[in-house]
């Protein structure tokens, strides 16, 4: 990633900035465990509500489980997204981020990666536990974890655009779902589709492939869109 800068003496290296950025985000997560624990608790809570609201019948729940797990994971991700840039915008860190000579999309990618590792990945690891509660067949747990891990990365990347666009909105937490949820539909379809296919005895690989393709597309485009959105939100 190192490229010759015009100003040879300064020699800023994007890799160093990326490492510093990710280290700081990890430190902050360790100082504020709520930032990553709350979405997990929310995920578990929502899943608990469904059987109470619908019916404790195991056969009914196992039919609904793929959709329920995915919708709950989607909402939990969304919940954690609002703070992705907001704190930084308030304390001036975001301003410094935009003033850095490093490529902004790269730094954003680092932040989203940490966000995924602290939200999407734990959600994926926790999902089998909730799968048990929803009487999901045990064979599908591995697939559930893989699909959630893949899908939640895409959700984080797309959500970052929404989070960046709503920094300037006073109660952005309300408008963010409106911007982002329609864009989450493909991930929801193929994520729960993978699970349904596996339960029905079909082949889940095509669904995973599409989830992977969606992730690749999001990786290519979302950091740039987020960078543009951040600049717009901060400086008109």
């Amino acid at each position: 990633m190192s490229r010759p800068e015009r100003d040879g003496a300064a020699g800023p290296t994007p890799a160093r900035a990326l490492r510093g950025m990710m280290r700081r985000d990890l430190l902050l997560l360790s100082r504020h465990p709520g930032a990553w624990l709350n979405p997990l608790a929310f995920f578990a809570l929502v899943i608990t509500l469904f059987p109470i609201g619908i019916s404790p019948s195991a056969s009914l729940l196992s039919d609904l489980a793929p959709g329920l797990l995915w919708v709950a994971a989607l909402l939990a991700t969304l919940l954690s997204l609002d703070g992705l840039f907001r704190d930084d915008a308030e304390d001036g860190s975001l301003e410094q981020l935009l003033l850095s000579p490093q490529p902004l999309p790269l730094l954003i990618l680092g932040r989203v990666a940490i966000h995924w590792a602290s939200t999407g990945l734990p959600l994926a690891l926790m999902a089998p536990l909730l799968g048990v509660m929803l009487s999901l067949p045990a064979e599908s747990y591995l697939l559930l974890m893989v699909a959630l891990a893949l899908g939640s990365a895409t959700l984080g990347l797309i959500g970052a655009i929404g989070a960046a666009l709503t920094i300037g909105v006073a109660r952005g937490g309300i408008i963010l779902p409106l911007l982002v949820l329609p864009l989450y539909v493909p991930v929801l379809i193929f994520g729960s589709g993978a699970l349904q296919a596996a339960i029905g005895g079909g082949n889940a690989a095509p669904h995973l492939a599409v989830l992977g393709a969606l992730l690749a597309l999001a990786l290519m485009l979302a950091p740039w869109a987020t960078a543009a959105a951040l600049r717009i939100s901060l400086n008109g």
Binding site: A17, M21, D91, E95, S100
Partner: peptide
């Protein structure tokens, strides 16, 4: 700028480490 760009939860050393890294230094 006006805002300090410091994270209240981090120490002065940790905050400065981030600023130096962001400058690529």
């Amino acid at each position: 700028g006006h805002a300090s760009a410091l994270k209240p939860a981090l120490s002065a050393l940790e905050n400065l480490a981030w600023h130096a890294a962001l400058a690529g230094q």
